[in-house]
Design a protein around this nucleic acid. Structure first.
Lengths: 333, 333
DNA sequence: CTGAAAGCGCTTACAG
DNA sequence: CTGAAAGCGCTTACAG
């Protein structure tokens, strides 16, 4: 193990003081051309790379942005993380991810890890952190929340109108002539799941259709739960011609359950998802869905966090959900 | 912005020296019971959480494990990252991810970022980092490479036998009676893609079948390239009854291309993928594929990194690929 | 323009 | 068992 080279080594090598080395590295003050050159050469020769942690300690900042996500491998969160990465690219800040796994205790642990690393700001994706804790946190550092709307920090929350999104998806089916529309909801204690369910109901009722609770089954946002939901649904009735999934993953599961029964999409049954995961385009048929602007939200969160960190003015630009019509929906035959 | 509380504050509050506070926090020496208690209470009262960065600086370690991945949102890398997260869980180490985006310059940048943060070890996923650079890095810290075999560090590389994997997938099709088997390869400059192609050829030739280069088309591991590969293939011939995709994502794309042509899987054409992404189980029909033990590799890499960091003996346990027969393959009719 | 000095928040021999 | 002191690798007033 070679000894790692420090700024002091560079100083000695270049025949200047550490202060001077620091100044040329950070461009924080004028330095005589010849010393400037000597320092640069010494850095080259020694292969020096500054210790970001020490720098952080001295400056009182870590140059890290904490991101509490739920599951690193989730296609949904993955897109948001990608957006954050993109938004931070080119800045001196680097994201540090910690996963909450949709469990309050794990999420608290994630917060602990990040604050122990003295992240300069945080981006929080969904989750169960109590609002007051988030509000408290927001007093001590810049913070953006994606997927929730916290009272008192509306300027720092990025979310779509889930009710409106589900309403659009359901309207789409109604306009195609469907009147018996099933709904696979998310876990209803979840705000987004609840709101999407409201949107579904609103569209149904507004169209003067009968809201049939037998057509509503609850899943947990996983593919597997989509399969199970369809099993439950079919055990009750076959009297429906369309399905609104509360997210894409459950819609994928529903598609499999239909496939197993030899039921064709959209020929026999129309199917709508929610989120617009990358996989939607490659479902067969490609899935009609309500787009959640994951990548955009990630980028926007990063953009604004950076502005906040620089104490510059900012306004968070919210994005809307949007109906993406592909091929899993068709006119009622 | 409240002032953040430090170990010194705790010391003052508890009426002891900073040394003592440090000792009770780290359990690094005996401390009189009453002082021990006082410190714990002070920590509670002040809501103190240690500054991991400062600790790292003092101890000469960062408690971070650098992970260079290619794309954070990729379903393939996502599973590996999840495995790493799981493997590190419960240890004092936290992963820091940096993405190379399959580009040499970005990967170098990722390495720079991680070494600037003085990660204590690294896990490298695939990528283009030159072998000598990896060998050099391995002299200065524990490092595990996933998806490559580097000469001189075989004890620290985790990979499957890609040739063997593709061989198994192709054999499976041959055993089902197929003799006209197309192959959508990955980018052939890529070692894994190349090896998989070799496995395909080997199975074909060993079975005494004709290797027909018209049946081989090159993709780039994305879904979209799978679609395009099928377009290219169909423009040449329709004379095949099975397809081996060099990865699942291209197989998904191929499935869509087949769907668009009204060709049924596996009724008309059998399809085999490679990797066993989570999505395979929800393709319709569920995709027969060759499993790449992503999650296991991630966990194993983390496990061994932890042992190396503690200077304990270790042996890296390699996993094999495995044929997962689902429903996208059938006897030739 | 530049260096000496103090400080960031910890840890760890050292001495008692 | 415990504290004073030095040090980890930087930055930044301060003085010149």
């Amino acid at each position: 193990m070679r000894e790692t080279v420090t700024l002091n080594h560079v100083a000695r090598e270049a025949g200047v003081s550490p202060s001077t080395v620091s100044r040329v590295i950070n461009g924080t003050a004028q330095v005589a051309p010849e010393k400037h050159k000597a320092v640069l050469e010494a850095i080259q020769r020694l292969g020096y790379s500054p210790n970001v942690l020490a720098k952080g300690l001295a400056q009182g900042k870590s140059l890290s942005i904490g991101v509490v996500t739920q599951e690193i491998s989730s296609p949904f969160y993955g897109e948001i993380l990608k957006g954050i990465e993109q938004g931070l690219d080119g800045s001196p800040y680097h994201p540090i991810f910690a996963s909450g796994h949709w469990r309050a205790d794990r999420e608290k642990e994630a917060l602990r890890v990040l604050s122990g690393r003295r992240v300069d700001a945080m981006i929080v994706l969904d989750g169960l952190v109590p609002e007051r804790e988030l509000l408290l946190l927001a007093k001590s550092m810049p913070i953006i929340v994606i997927g929730r709307r916290i009272k008192g920090m509306e300027r720092h929350c990025l979310d779509i109108d889930h009710t409106q999104g589900a309403y659009m998806g359901t309207r789409h089916l109604i306009e195609l002539g469907h009147s018996r529309i099933a709904h696979i909801s998310g876990p209803l204690h979840n705000k987004a799941a609840h709101d999407r369910y409201q949107g579904y109901k609103k569209a149904i009722q507004e169209a003067g259709l009968q809201l049939d609770l037998d057509l509503v089954v609850e899943g947990n946002f996983t593919e597997q739960s989509g399969v199970l939901a369809m099993d439950a649904l079919f055990s009750k009735t076959r009297n429906f011609t369309a399905i609104l999934g509360s997210n894409d993953q459950m819609a994928f599961g529903a598609k499999l359950a239909l496939y197993r029964r030899g039921i064709r999409v959209p020929h026999d049954i129309s199917l709508v998802g929610f989120d617009d995961l990358p996989g939607c385009s490659y479902m067969t048929p490609p899935l009609t869905t309500v787009r959640f602007p994951t990548l955009e939200f990630g980028r926007e969160a990063a953009r604004v966090i950076l502005l906040m960190l620089e104490n510059r003015p900012y306004t968070l630009h919210n994005f809307q959900s949007q109906l993406i019509v592909r091929e899993s929906t068709a006119l009622l035959r």
